[in-house]
């Protein structure tokens, strides 16, 4: 599904930048599952996945012509995804301050076993205990981003990424209990 080589991807991005709809469509199809996975890891909510993924790809299409280096498309796309999810989580937090009665409606946890195996439930539970920034960090690593790319996405140094990643992994492991009953 995904472009087979970095060159093929860069060519596809260039075509999409010129407004080629078929290329834009192919980019979305190629990355929709990965972006959806990232959004789900960040929010822990199945019902947010389609809306947020759509927001990410609309931003992508709008801003594509401003991407200077087509070879860095993936890092750029996941930066958009991270920022979109963090904005959404911030808005949700703000809304809770102003509409306190809405909280119970907003945080309906998916029951254990509703989304998959015991391991997946445990991972969802463990991710939910982390800060959004740490969730983003772990999800970016799972996406195969290098430390240098993550440092660029988060506008920080490689050393800081390594340190934060170590702490995030520790926290995840602390909360990861495959027999946990949510």
């Amino acid at each position: 599904m995904e472009p087979t080589s970095p060159n093929a991807l860069a060519d596809l991005v260039r075509l999409a930048q010129r407004g080629d709809e078929a290329a834009q469509h192919e980019l979305i199809v190629s990355y929709q599952h990965r972006v959806a996975g990232f959004v789900y890891a960040m929010t822990g909510r199945s019902d947010y996945v389609e809306d947020l993924a759509q927001q990410v790809f609309i931003k992508m299409i709008r801003a594509l012509d401003r991407l200077q280096a087509p070879a860095q498309f993936e890092s750029w796309l996941f930066r958009l995804a991270r920022n979109t999810c963090i904005d959404q989580l911030r808005r949700q937090k703000l809304r809770r301050i102003f509409i306190p009665f809405g909280e119970e409606h907003e945080n309906i946890a998916e029951p254990a076993g509703a989304v998959g195996t015991e391991e997946l439930d445990a991972l969802r539970h463990a991710l939910a205990q982390l800060r959004p920034q740490d969730r983003a960090l772990l999800a970016l690593v799972q996406e195969g981003r290098s430390h240098a790319e993550i440092a660029e996405i988060l506008s920080t140094s490689v050393a800081a990424v390594k340190a934060r990643l170590h702490r995030a992994r520790e926290h995840l492991r602390e909360h990861y209990q495959p027999d946990h009953e949510t």
Binding site: H25, I28, A36, V49, I58, I61, L120
Partner: peptide, 22 residues
């Protein structure tokens, strides 16, 4: 487990997602 998470999230996208985004 991470792959399961991604597969579950990917399954939330209704068919025709790319066309709807465009």
């Amino acid at each position: 487990t991470w792959r399961q998470l991604q597969a579950h999230a990917g399954a939330q996208l209704r068919p025709g997602f790319a066309a709807r985004v465009l």
